[in-house]
Each structure stands twice: as structure tokens, then as C-alpha cells.
Amino acid sequence: MDVNQTNSIAFMLRYIMENLVDDRTSLSETLDILYNIISQEGLEAISPYTGHPGNLVLPRKQEVAAALNRYRYLKVK
């Protein structure tokens, strides 16, 4: 894994927690929504910085799901 992929995953987790998590959407559906947003708007959509997002690299969905799976503060119903 590349450092830029790690940064992207961190930004993706933050974006998911702040914008996409609800009680009705599954993890798989949430990741599909996230990747649809990125495919339409680019990686700058998940970046907390305005303008150019920096050196971000798009990780695979499985890598983001694995990071969510290991996130200690995630509460699943």
C-alpha cells in the first residue's frame, strides 16, 4: 500500500463518518455511494482541503472496507 492510498483511506473514513453513515444503509451500499461520488466529482470530493486534493490515490473498495472493519470506535447496529 502506498502512503497516498493511506491518506485517501483516512479522508474516506472521515467523509463516510461525517456525511454518509445512517441507520439504514449497509457498509456495501455506503461504499458504493462513496465511490459513485468519487467517480462523479473526483478525489477532491473527499478531501478536507479546498482546491487540489494533493497526492491522493484511489484505493480498492476492499481496502476501505478493511479499514472500517478495524476502526475501533465504529458502532454497528
Rank of each mutant, 00 (worst) to 15 (best):
M1A: 07
M1W: 07
D2R: 00
D2Y: 01
D2M: 01
V3G: 03
Q5V: 03
T6L: 08
T6D: 07
N7V: 03
F11P: 00
M12D: 02
M12P: 01
L13A: 03
R14C: 08
Y15N: 12
I16Q: 09
M17L: 11
E18V: 08
E18M: 12
E18P: 07
E18N: 13
N19M: 09
N19L: 03
L20N: 09
L20P: 09
D22F: 01
D23L: 15
D23T: 14
R24Q: 11
T25L: 09
S26D: 13
L27Y: 04
S28F: 06
E29M: 06
E29R: 12
T30I: 06
L31K: 06
D32C: 04
I33D: 02
L34W: 12
L34D: 07
Y35T: 11
N36K: 09
N36T: 09
I37K: 07
I38Q: 06
I38C: 10
I38H: 02
I38G: 14
S39T: 07
S39R: 13
Q40W: 01
E41Q: 15
G42D: 02
G42K: 05
G42C: 04
L43C: 03
E44L: 04
A45N: 02
A45S: 14
A45I: 01
A45C: 06
I46L: 05
I46V: 14
I46Q: 04
Y49H: 10
Y49V: 02
Y49W: 13
G51E: 11
G51F: 05
H52V: 04
P53M: 13
G54P: 04
G54T: 10
N55R: 11
L56I: 10
L56H: 10
V57M: 13
V57E: 14
L58K: 14
R60G: 00
K61V: 10
Q62N: 08
Q62T: 11
E63S: 14
E63G: 10
A67Y: 08
A67S: 12
L68Y: 11
L68R: 07
N69M: 10
N69K: 15
R70K: 09
Y71F: 08
Y71N: 15
Y73T: 06
L74K: 02
V76G: 00
K77L: 07
K77D: 02
